[in-house]
Nucleic acid binder design. Structure first.
Length: 358
DNA sequence: AGGTATGATTCTGC
DNA sequence: GCAGAATCATACCT
């Protein structure tokens, strides 16, 4: 009742009717004869009430007419005010909520993993961290490492394109709703504040959708990461040729089985493995050899013989180039023969000499 | 299935 | 940062 009075007062203010005049039949009559503002208001309200019963075309025409009515701005502002006080004041409480900790957590993680944030550095840094965590050198250029990076880049790309889609959809929808509300505000009391509030609601809804995207992206990164680490952890025996190359080096450098960085690189290249794998192999080999020399003796002998034979073959080839039947080639043949015949009895003694000679 | 071999990881000391 | 040592996890063999 109070609001109604205020509304009328407000309309009266603009239409030339004071609050005092409203309750006074004389002054109403006076005003009616001056321009009939109260009848105007009653008429307008009646027309607004009846608008839903009219056909679309009629309603459109009515809307236009009302929109152009001289009392419209006043009526509109009063109705907005009333609405603000009643309906909106209830919902006004839950405004301006603080940033969601869940979203913050997801954002931080995506940033740390290099999915969001700057393209350069982030992804490779995370990949390097993952590689380092897995015990490998980030500079290995190993298959797994590049694979991880490629997969991460893929996730990143999907994430950004989806995010862009969401943002576009959000802004399109916001614009649509704003236009709709602006359009409706011609016939309904919708204040700019209310439109703002509606926009905020839409943004909240879209950000909750975004959160789902962020969540699933985080999960994808986690799965990728665990698979990547698992794949590195999964043991695969080196092939026979690689083991032979490593053993040859080890037993031919038994007095100092510590390959230099260059030697490791060379071995890695020969064996088709990484430098860190070579380091691992030598680390394991040294410790296991030292722990159980007896067990490795046979292997040591085998490789010593191999080395001796190889050395003999090399020297035989070299001398054959000079003369086809030099004592050197004979020596090689003898050596092989001796190895074949005295294997069981004198191998130990013979190999002692062979190792010394190499 | 159980034992052994082996590549990888982790911890520690230097 | 590297090496040794212990340990883990899996491949391979019997």
């Amino acid at each position: 009742m109070d609001d109604q009075t205020r509304m009328l007062a407000s309309m009266g203010g603009l239409g030339g009717l004071s609050q005092a005049d409203v309750g006074d039949p004389d002054s109403v009559r006076k005003q009616q004869s001056l321009g009939q503002p109260q009848q105007d208001i009653g008429d307008i309200l009646q027309q607004i009430m009846a608008i839903t019963d009219e056909s679309l075309d009629e309603a459109q025409a009515r809307k236009h007419a009302l929109n152009c009515h001289r009392m419209k701005p006043a009526l509109f502002s009063v109705l907005c005010e009333i609405k603000e006080k009643t309906v909106l004041s209830i919902r006004g409480v839950q405004e301006e909520d603080p940033p969601d900790p869940q979203i913050m957590r997801l954002d931080n993680m995506l940033l740390a993993e290099g999915v969001s944030g700057p393209e350069k550095g982030g992804g490779s840094a995370a990949a390097a961290a993952a590689a380092a965590a897995a015990g490998g050198s980030p500079n290995d250029g190993s298959i797994e490492h590049s694979d991880y990076r490629a997969k991460l880049a893929q996730i990143r790309q999907i994430y950004h394109s989806e995010l862009e889609k969401y943002e576009q959809a959000c802004s399109e929808f916001t614009n649509h709703v704003m236009n709709l509300l602006r359009e409706q505000s011609r016939t309904r009391p919708i204040s700019p504040k209310e439109i703002e509030r509606m926009v905020a609601i839409i943004h909240r809804k879209f950000s909750s959708i975004q959160m789902q995207l962020k969540q699933s992206t985080c999960e994808a990164v986690m799965i990728l990461r665990s698979r990547f680490l698992d794949a590195r952890r999964k043991r695969r025996n080196f092939n026979k040729q690689a083991t032979e190359v490593l053993n040859e080096y080890f037993y031919s450098h038994l007095s100092n089985p510590y390959p230099s960085e260059e030697a490791k690189e060379e071995l890695a290249k020969k064996c088709g493995i990484t430098v860190s794998q070579v380091s691992n192999w030598f680390g394991n080999k040294r410790i296991r050899y030292k722990k159980n020399i007896g067990k490795f003796q046979e292997e040591a002998n085998l490789y010593a013989v191999k080395t001796a034979v190889d050395a003999a073959n090399v020297s035989a080839q070299a001398s054959q180039a000079n003369s086809p039947a030099t004592p050197n080639s004979d020596n090689a043949c003898l050596l092989v023969f001796a190895l074949c015949t005295c294997w069981e009895q004198d191998l130990g003694v013979f190999l002692g000499c062979a190792i010394k000679s190499t």
